[in-house]
Design a binder for these strands. Structure first.
Lengths: 229, 229
DNA sequence: TAAAACTGTCACATAACTGTCGCATAGCGA
DNA sequence: TCGCTATGCGACAGTTATGTGACAGTTTTA
């Protein structure tokens, strides 16, 4: 699955550059222009990693960082800080606040990309690994196969991506909109109810040999992969 | 082709010695000082073999090993562990984790070099082997012959290379683009659909005497050699 | 040098998958 | 319990991806 990076940066020139290059590196990228916006987007879209400018309007980078660390859902969200030279003494405070790494401006794209790779690997090995297990479900991303209780399960491409995404965050509830963003892509327009249909198809496929349904419907909130099991 | 060896070792004296001696043995050598650095370098430089100290700062040797084995790109990367005497009981765990061989410190350079040669010869399946087997298919890369179920199969050059490539990674799904890169070469421009046609021809040739198709189509993803069978 | 073998593309047939509707149910607050 | 809202899901028509025979241009073989 494609890692999803949120860039929080108020200088448009830089954020556009970052978007362009990270996209080319194979990441899905969104931009937030200030800390407040960032906090909202993080909640809604659950990125895999955040590139966070130290200085930001409204809510500073440090503050964003601190708040994310204070909440359990975002405690392990990888964060890379961007700091300007001269704020160097602050770096340490940055890491204290809970950033996973920092890059000093001006930086090269390849340097940032390398840090991102390293941090993703270190913090969230699940992203890079090519097999996801949960209960009796196995998703093999390289072979593009799904098994449940040792039976081969055939899924269409969309159902496959949907399951893959849910398996990355077991137990977490996703709204239909979040799932559309993550699985269909933020650019296409599709009815939210379509998610229901695909969830239904996924359920049917997964439960054909087994009695218990691993997908939990959370009324008026969305769906999640059942954390138990 | 000079084999490229990455040495992961935190004691500078030892790593320098290794670099010197392995270089003299005819290997290209790079050093990583801890596990984290190693993981980055492996990704970026794709060495042919890794000499990995058991005890490392940040990310231990075992952990590095485990993570490499969890990702398909590095699953077959040969690894030789360096363990200190007294960690001997751990040795077994080392091999379980996926190391291909281990050497107990203190060791002689010639011993290490011999292990490296042996492992390179033994492990590199596609590169060194002159025959690939999978199910009832045999590809003889030296004689340039293919047999299935004991019948000689005639393939054109492109079909041969295509099958050869698929047989190096059974089960793994390759996109049309990946196959074009690997089989046709990254510089030529050929329609992606051309892959379909060659897959079709390959299928026809392979299945002429046998009923079951060893090539799996994964809709919207690509093709793979069926890992079962 | 002619015949045979091989390639890459196309066009068309078919199979697989998608998104939406609409109606049936289930859940929930009053 | 009633009424409203949210979800489940079969059906369907439109779309997209794949399989494959034909063909013309090239390369290899005899």
């Amino acid at each position: 699955m494609i890692p999803y990076v949120l860039v929080v940066e108020d200088e448009d020139a830089l954020s556009a550059l970052l978007q362009y290059n990270l996209d080319k590196e194979g990441y899905r990228v969104t931009i937030a222009g200030d800390g407040e916006e960032a906090l909202v987007m993080i909640d809604e879209q659950m990125p895999d990693l955040i590139v966070l400018d130290w200085m930001l309007p409204k809510v500073s980078g440090v503050e964003v960082c601190r708040r994310l660390r204070a909440r359990s859902e975002t405690r392990n969200l990888p964060i890379i800080m961007l700091t300007a030279r001269g704020e160097e003494s602050d770096r340490i405070r940055g890491l204290d606040t809970g950033a996973d790494d920092y890059v000093v401006k001006p930086f090269s794209m390849s340097e940032l990309a390398a840090r991102i790779r390293a941090v993703l690997r270190r913090i969230r090995p699940g992203l890079a690994e090519d097999r996801l297990h949960h209960g009796d479900i196995i998703v093999d991303r390289v072979a593009h196969r799904v098994r449940r209780a040792d039976k081969e399960i055939h899924l269409g491409p969309t159902e496959f991506r949907l399951l893959d995404y849910l398996m990355q965050h077991p137990g977490r509830v996703f709204s239909r909109e979040q799932l559309l963003d993550a699985v269909w892509g933020s650019d296409v327009y599709v009815e939210a109810r379509t998610v229901d249909v695909h969830i239904g198809r996924l359920r049917k496929a997964l439960n054909q040999h087994v009695d218990n349904d691993p997908i939990r419907t959370v009324r008026s909130a969305g769906y999640s992969l059942d954390a138990s099991a």
